[in-house]
Structure formats: C-alpha cells, structure tokens
Design a protein around this nucleic acid. Sequence first.
DNA 1: CGATTTTTTGGCAGAATCTGCCAATACTCT
DNA 2: AGAGTATTGGCAGATTCTGCCAAAAAATCG
Lengths: 156, 156
Amino acid sequence: MSNQRLDAIDIRILARLQADGRITNQQLADAVGLSPSPCLRRVRQLEESGIIQGYVGLVDPAAVGLGVTAFVRIRLEQQDDTRLSLFEAAVADFPEVMECYLMTGEADYQLRVLVGSLSEFEDFLRHKLTKVAGVSQVTTSFALRPVVYKTALPVG
Amino acid sequence: MSNQRLDAIDIRILARLQADGRITNQQLADAVGLSPSPCLRRVRQLEESGIIQGYVGLVDPAAVGLGVTAFVRIRLEQQDDTRLSLFEAAVADFPEVMECYLMTGEADYQLRVLVGSLSEFEDFLRHKLTKVAGVSQVTTSFALRPVVYKTALPVG
DNA sequence: CGATTTTTTGGCAGAATCTGCCAATACTCT
DNA sequence: AGAGTATTGGCAGATTCTGCCAAAAAATCG
C-alpha cells in the first residue's frame, strides 16, 4: 500500500486490466510486450501495493431490478468528527448507497443511491437515512437516465 | 441482451463475481454449490445476456495522480433531442468524465469528473465543457474525500 | 570508463484450470 | 406414471498459471 513508480509498461498493464479484468496473463503479457513471467510479477506488485484495488464483475442494474438512481445531498446538524464518523459508518452499511462523498459547499455529503422503485427509495429515506443521528437536511434529485458510467481511470 | 429469469444460484454467482471478478470457475462452482461445468455455462449465459456487463480491474485514483473529484451540474439552453444528443456525445468523449446522468430538477445533467488538480479542472471547464454547444449554466461542487465507492449491486 | 551490484527478464515444468462433450439425473406437463 | 425438456456431473485434451533459475539489462560506484 506504499508509493511506487509506474513506468510505461505498468501504465499499459493498468489500462488493459481496467478494460478487461479477466484477460489472461499470457494475453496481457503479449499486449504489453513482455513474456508471461515478468508480466505476472508486475501485476502482483501492482496488486500488493494497492494500486490495483481488485477485480470485479459489473452487473446491469436494470437486470436485477434496480432501475432508480437518486442523488441525495445531506446536511448534518453539526460537523464534528464524531458526527461525521457516525454518519459515514451508517451509510457504509446501507446496501443502497453506491457512492458517498464528503463535500465542499452547501451539502456535507452527497450520495448516489440505487433502488428498485420510488417507494423503495421512500423506505430508504424514511426508515434508514433520516434515522441516522445528526442528519438535518436532505435534498434528492433523480437520474432520468445514465449517460456515462466508467470505472476505468484515464491512464495513458 | 434479453430478459432472463434469475434463480437463487444465478444470484449467488452474480454476488460472487461482483466481489471478485477473477475468481476461478472451480472456486465459484464450489461457492454456489455446483460442479464447474454447469457453473461455467451459467456464467457464460449471464455474460451473453448482458446481465454481466464485463469484468474490470479497479485502480486507485490517487496512485495515478487523480486526486480531485468534482461534481458538475449543467443546464442547457434548450432541451430538444438534438441538443441532448450532442451534449451526451461530447461528454462521453471526455476522459475526465467518469459518470454522467440526465437529471430531474434544476440541472439537466450531473457529471462526476476526475482530475489531478484544480488547475486541470479549470482546463477541463474552460477548454472542454463550456465549449460544448448549448451549455448554459455550470455549477461545481468538489468532493473533500470519498467515503463509499462500490461497484457491486445489492443482490442477495 | 569499466567492474560490480542490483534489477528485470525469459524459459522451463509441474500443477492447476478451462472447457467442450456426453451420459445421467432432475424437473415439467399432461 | 411417462414422455419430453432442461440441467447437471464427470471426463480429458488443451490452455494457463506460477515458482524457480540462469541470462540479460540497468544502475551504481570507484
């Protein structure tokens, strides 16, 4: 999990793995111009150093009945460390919360919430989010449609 | 890319693959209580039907110098189909734009933008985003810190 | 510059995994 | 119960993985 200098080959490895997390080591080695052995070693190093955080399968939300994306901006009553930690622990446990950021500006936090329907969202608001200690103001906007969703960072 | 009924085993397969996109088929089969062969067949079907959209490696943004997350809300001058399509095509080509949603409410679009520094963000705003035809109002909030970032949908 | 150390690479080989095929099992519907 | 359909498990050749070691490349230092 420490610093590490990334050379041109590492960058290409990252680009490839971001595009296809199941590429075989042989294909990857071929793509970046190495033989399998040093290629695998580089990948392992990138994994162990935390630069590669993991590999995941991506599932179509609509296919599993999760068609509603909501963005929720939240103000807390107070912003001391304890309140922030409490709130963060709470949202981290909500399966509906896909993203959460501590923010500058009007809101303290912004959430991206994924649910199956508006009534599920209401349940989430009424029974979960507003029950968290310290939550003062909640503002919701809904996504009509996703336009771009990427996980691959621009590298190279 | 068509509809498909998901049974309990499929759900468990999806959960596992969302948690570890490089799990071997044998481990996966074991975890869901099948032998490798039918397990692989189910995975292939989920892939071909588009329920599994793909597999990706996740890279730490800070490790590649991308430490600034900005949320940008955008109003267009007009909201006819042509303008929307034009805007969407433009943002899809910006490597900085990780997410974009067509929104209800005040803003027409909301973007999550990932850059290395505030000056890079200014470049993005001045030379890219505001140059897109039809963009009228742009409001930015910055993330101080990511709290939750998940790709795994709640299934199971 | 040349010699030494350090780092990185490529090839090898046994182990593990993949994956298509086929017979056996389980399920469905009348 | 029985016919038909769908799903499963086992098998085996092909592919891939992955640790080890010697060779090559790069970096360091006198």
